[in-house]
Design a binder for these strands. Structure first.
Lengths: 198, 198
DNA sequence: CAACGGTGTGTACGCTCGTCCACATGCTCG
DNA sequence: CGAGCATGTGGACGAGCGTACACACCGTTG
């Protein structure tokens, strides 16, 4: 195999069977493992996100995953933290760019349609986090941070009560879109948001 | 142990070690397994709902679970079907009893507060189903049925568009309540529902 | 140059899991 | 009464899992 060939090229004795893979220089393997974990979760769910599955996709040995993260929960928490920051950051940008409440509502509708509902990967990751956070304390904090950040962003343009209701409706729409075979159109979504803010 | 004593009382030879437990007459074991499965899911999540855990709590041998249900997914589907029918039935009752739209809204708020948000078990089971349905085809259909039945009940008093938005908001509120450390009060919930229907 | 520590690599251990199977029991119906 | 069958019971099997560990490599530091 190529691993054997590489070993020979590096001058290792080819007599033995070991065929140990050549050591790689891989400075940001940790970050790559986080990104790969998100890919695996999106495709197979948290349930399918095992050390072995992540290591296989990232093309690293199994032991490497436990070297960089002291446990699987820690790896998952790191992954969801990165993802949550990306999504929350996007919402904050939308809200900061909106000049008034009317524009903020349009921006929220677009954020929903484009970043959440329209993107299979983001949608799946959100729901997977919802579920995983229910049982894993390490993920509760990640979810809390995400929720707080989202609400803060909404409060740039809406009073706290309305922001909270919008937040809940958004979560419901995400879940609805995910589960339903007959999802709502962007127009319906926009209309629902409008009703909350009137 | 008592199993041994029972075996001897039944005239089995006590020389051997086997100590096989006496056969029990248990006509509705299948239904009891379903109920037990819901208990286990509520306490340990779908992830913790294994054949062995359910059998232990129901006090039946491991093999009994695979005798009554050809697979674990089938058992979970049966359990969530029963649960979904109970909750959907409760909503239908509320809606049928409401004389007008105003009363229907109050009833929905009470249904939410009492049956869903105020009941830890029901809340957990709903979210667990959301999550499990994402990856298990056998549960998708169960979720669909539940959603359709809920929407039909709401359409007794609200137009289809509003019913749909209410449905999504309810799902969001359930999830919100489940994840948040600082949940909404019944008054806030009622107010949010009112905004949708205006 | 030698010791050392950070990183990469392969493998072993103990455990739980879903599923399957062999056998025991007792009701039903001829 | 006796054969057949639904149900009850215990145990086995192979697979996948998280984690731990021994060893290999290599830049740094004294």
């Amino acid at each position: 195999m190529s691993a054997q060939a590489t070993a020979e090229a590096l001058g290792r004795p080819s007599a033995g069977e070991p065929a140990r893979r050549a050591r790689r220089y891989d400075p940001d393997r940790r970050e790559r493992l986080i990104a790969t974990a998100l890919d695996v979760i999106a495709e197979h769910g948290v349930e399918g996100a095992t050390h072995r599955a992540i290591a296989r996709v990232a093309d690293v040995p199994l032991g490497s995953t436990t070297y960089h993260f002291s446990s699987l929960d820690e790896l998952l928490a790191a992954a969801f933290t990165v993802h949550g920051e990306q999504v929350a950051g996007a919402l904050e940008e939308w809200m900061r760019a909106a000049p008034d409440q009317q524009a903020a509502l349009d921006a929220l509708a677009r954020h929903l349609a484009e970043d959440l509902l329209g993107n299979e990967r983001t949608l799946v990751l959100a729901v997977e986090l919802y579920v995983a956070a229910a049982r894993r304390p390490a993920l509760r904090a990640v979810t809390q941070d995400w929720m707080v950040r989202s609400r803060r962003a909404l409060e740039l343009h809406f009073d706290p009560v309305t922001a909270r209701e919008l937040d809940a409706l958004v979560e419901g729409l995400v879940l609805h879109q995910f589960l339903s075979t007959d999802p709502m159109t962007p127009e319906q979504v926009h209309s629902a948001l409008l009703r909350i803010t009137r």
